[in-house]
Amino acid sequence: MTAVLPRPLVPTPRASSEPTTRSTPAVAYQRVLHQAVRREFRMLADLASWAPADDTARTADLTGHADLLSRVLLQHHATERELLWPALFRNLPAREQDAARDAIGYWTSRAALLDHMLRDLSTVARQWAVAGTLPARNAFARACTRVADTVEAHLAAEERDLLPLLSRYLPTSEWRAVSRAATTTLTGREQLLVLGLALEDASAIDRARLMAGLSPATRTAWRVIGRRTYRAAVVRLRGAPPAA
């Protein structure tokens, strides 16, 4: 039987005031995705900490969400490493290149560590699914907490050092080229779920920019089935509806 949350864990949409870093399509995308994975890994650790260890349906929901988040972040890092940072570097003035090279090198080392932790989390999740024991559940919750802490530090450094450069120097045309070239192994349903995660507590400005960057078919799919499917998935996972 699905557990009921003792309190609703519902994010609050962020205010629409613009942050210090100017919001461009690339920055808006980075910001809403970062916010979503920060929130979801932290929430996942909390949800797992009181989940019944031997409830196979609940275990499947939580470990399945962890798997989705991990795949999203691994693919996101690959896109940044292979497409986004090279595009940024091509457009930097000479005076910014040395500092950017150092920042990207720092990002690369942190991203490699985080990617390793995400793969370890998948292993711990499978162990809980097979064992169904309290120690296995606790190991999964601890792994989620470690990932959440590392995600927070990694993304804070990226937002401090690299998003301002994206804001100032990456042309919108280059961002569109990166978006077109990026690939994903997510199913259509998974992509709509991730879109819901990104939209949920985004500011009005970032939400508008994200939606504007989608294809007309994706926007239609979100309106017709995506929003409803996302709400049902969130209620099942959290025991409370999404914020928006």
Rank of each mutant, 00 (worst) to 15 (best):
A103K: 08
W85D: 01
S203M: 03
A157L: 11
A202G: 11
L84E: 09
V130S: 11
V130R: 15
V32S: 03
S23T: 12
R231L: 06
R38Y: 07
T187D: 08
G239F: 09
A28P: 03
G188Y: 02
D46V: 15
H77Q: 14
A177M: 08
A26F: 10
G105I: 00
P242V: 08
G239E: 06
E152V: 05
L83A: 04
D55N: 15
S16E: 15
V10D: 00
G188N: 11
V27M: 04
E18K: 08
S215F: 02
D61G: 01
D120P: 00
T145C: 02
V235D: 02
F140R: 07
R119K: 12
R168P: 00
P19I: 10
R227S: 14
C144P: 04
R168N: 05
R160H: 14
A182W: 04
E174V: 05
R238I: 01
Y169C: 01
A15N: 05
A198G: 04
T187H: 07
S215A: 14
D61L: 15
T220Y: 01
V10T: 15
F41T: 05
T220C: 02
R227K: 14
A141F: 04
A129S: 15
P242Q: 03
A103L: 10
P11H: 05
R31V: 12
E158M: 03
Q97Y: 00
Y169N: 04
P216Y: 09
D149T: 11
S122N: 11
R231Y: 03
T24M: 09
A202P: 07
S23L: 15
S173Q: 13
R90I: 00
T185N: 09
G239A: 06
A53M: 05
Q35P: 00
H116W: 09
R231E: 13
R58G: 13
H154W: 10
V37Q: 01
Q97E: 10
A157W: 02
T21E: 12
A148C: 05
L69Y: 07
L192M: 14
L92N: 03
R168K: 11
A202E: 05
F140H: 04
R146I: 06
P8N: 06
L170E: 01
